[in-house]
């Protein structure tokens, strides 16, 4: 196994482009090292991105948007008060991952590129409209977060490509986001269903909304019908019921050791409703 610690994304990309066999980028390593130790994936090449300049920075841009480095840990996000005020749902989603120890290492980029359908921060990123910059052999390009995972464990990144930055939109007025997950325990567990809602109000009425579901399909979903169900409403009971059924309709989960098709589908509707109410309260300033 070869280990590299490049100083730039271009160098990282070049190393990955030349590498033979199995290549992994090493951000927090909380997926990579676990898979290595349990004999699931033994990479031939490990490319550490933590030493690249800017990879650990959280930057607020002049227009109110945010640029997050690919090695920023969950703990660093949570301790950033301003980021948490703007995007509490996104920060909480990341903060749900693992334990205090895992939080010291785990990253948004790693969670996204590990491409688990149950990844917690991904629905929150998708609902928030997060975009990523990708550095590759042919230069850089941008993509929406939901375009990265293509199937469990698979991404749209080509050979030699890696995520080099994450971009979170400006929060703007009267907006709120929330992420909720269902786990059988209270912590240290994997989402059986995840639901994120991001919305904006005009007065009491929802004018914009994004609803994203995790662990109910091979990839995290952006469910436009669910958003449409609440846009133009004051999130009354009828709107919530419509949201619930649109969320359920979008599900194509599997039966497995963590939950049944019926259970996941049912709970996706429940969590979508609860997350929408939470985001709505945040947008109105009634909740933090």
């Amino acid at each position: 196994m070869e280990y590299h610690s490049p100083a730039s994304f271009d160098e990282a990309s070049a190393l990955a482009a030349q590498a033979q066999g199995v290549t992994r980028f090493l951000a927090g390593g909380t997926d990579v090292l676990v898979q290595l130790r349990s004999d699931l994936v033994t990479p031939d090449t490990l490319i550490d991105v933590k030493r690249i300049a800017g990879a650990r920075d959280i930057t607020r841009n002049a227009d109110g948007s945010w640029t997050l480095g690919v090695a920023v840990s969950g703990a660093e996000m949570r301790e950033h008060a301003e980021l948490g005020r703007d995007w509490p749902g996104l920060v909480e989603a990341m903060d749900l991952i693992g334990s205090t120890q895992v939080q010291g290492r785990a990253t948004l980029a790693g969670n996204l590129c590990n491409a688990s359908p149950a990844a917690d921060s991904v629905p929150a990123m998708v609902a928030a409209g997060v975009r990523v910059t990708i550095t590759g052999p042919d230069g850089t390009r941008q993509a929406a977060a939901e375009e990265i995972p293509t199937a469990p464990g698979k991404t749209s990144l080509g050979k030699g490509e890696l995520v080099s930055a994450l971009h979170v939109p400006a929060r703007g007025d009267r907006g709120g986001d929330a992420y909720l997950r269902f786990i059988p325990r209270t912590e240290m567990d994997i989402a059986v269903v995840g639901a994120a809602v991001n919305l904006r109000l005009d007065g009491e009425t929802v004018t914009e909304a994004w609803v994203s579901l995790g662990a109910v399909a091979p990839t995290v979903l952006l469910v436009e019908d669910a958003a449409a169900a609440i846009i133009g409403t004051t999130l009354d009971d009828a709107a919530l019921a419509a949201l619930d059924s649109a969320a359920r309709a979008a599900c194509s989960p599997i039966d497995d050791k963590r939950g049944t098709v019926d259970f996941r589908t049912e709970v996706a509707g429940v969590l979508a409703r609860r997350a929408a109410r939470f985001a709505y309260a945040r947008a109105k300033g009634d909740a933090k």
């Binding site: 059988p184 325990r185 209270t186 912590e187 240290m188 567990d189 994997i190 497995d256 050791k257 963590r258």
Partner: peptide, 23 residues
């Protein structure tokens, strides 16, 4: 949890859920 293949599906503390302190 045994699968159709007769193999144990949850040989680890992630999917074999003993209570954590906060439970």
């Amino acid at each position: 949890i045994y699968g159709e293949d007769g193999r144990l599906q949850n040989a680890g503390f992630l999917d074999y859920r003993i209570p954590v302190a906060s439970d």
